[in-house]
């Protein structure tokens, strides 16, 4: 029993150590409103993110939405949202509603909205990388396609 406890403890320790490495520095602007967690990439960066910043401004006013992250690769935009706990039951509907609204407002952009936690984590990391100028245009496009594939993955 003591041996088992030792193994479990060492695995947990290893997991924490793994989780602590490879973190990106955060230089983005964060919202002053304590109820909303919305980040904005400070312009200029090597890859233009002004379109996403404009979109975030629109989504910010939604009551149900608490956190927003987003990136754009050209006019292809990925937006990840997190909704209030009570709205988790119909987050897919909220997601669709926001997508429709944004598409109406920005008809030239190709917008993808997701409320999935995984997409949120990925885009959050990507935002930091863009802010720190640590990702090229080609890599961003590749990453964009990867995330889009994850959104479409139904399995």
């Amino acid at each position: 029993m003591k041996n088992l406890l030792n193994i479990i403890l060492s695995v947990l320790l290893l997991l924490t150590l793994v989780a602590c490495t490879g973190k990106e520095d955060d230089h983005r602007i964060t919202q002053t409103d304590p109820k909303k967690d919305i980040t904005k990439i400070i312009i200029p960066t090597s890859i233009d993110q002004s379109l996403t910043n404009k979109l975030k401004e629109t989504v910010k006013d939604k009551d149900e939405v608490t956190r927003v992250r987003g990136i754009n690769s050209g006019s292809d935009i990925l937006l990840a949202i997190e909704v209030k706990q009570i709205n988790q039951f119909n987050e897919q509907e909220i997601e669709k509603k926001i997508k429709k609204e944004l598409e109406k407002k920005y008809p030239e952009a190709n917008i993808e909205v997701s409320s999935d936690k995984k997409i949120f984590i990925e885009i959050d990391e990507l935002e930091k990388k863009i802010q720190n100028n640590r990702i090229g245009k080609k890599d961003l496009e590749k990453k964009y396609n990867e995330i889009k594939k994850l959104i479409k993955d139904q399995a």
Partner: peptide, 17 residues
């Protein structure tokens, strides 16, 4: 579930399996 989402390519929907 959170572990699978952070370290592997599983989304909230697919991490259940």
């Amino acid at each position: 579930t959170t572990f699978y989402m952070y370290f592997f390519d599983f989304t909230e929907q697919t991490a259940g399996n």
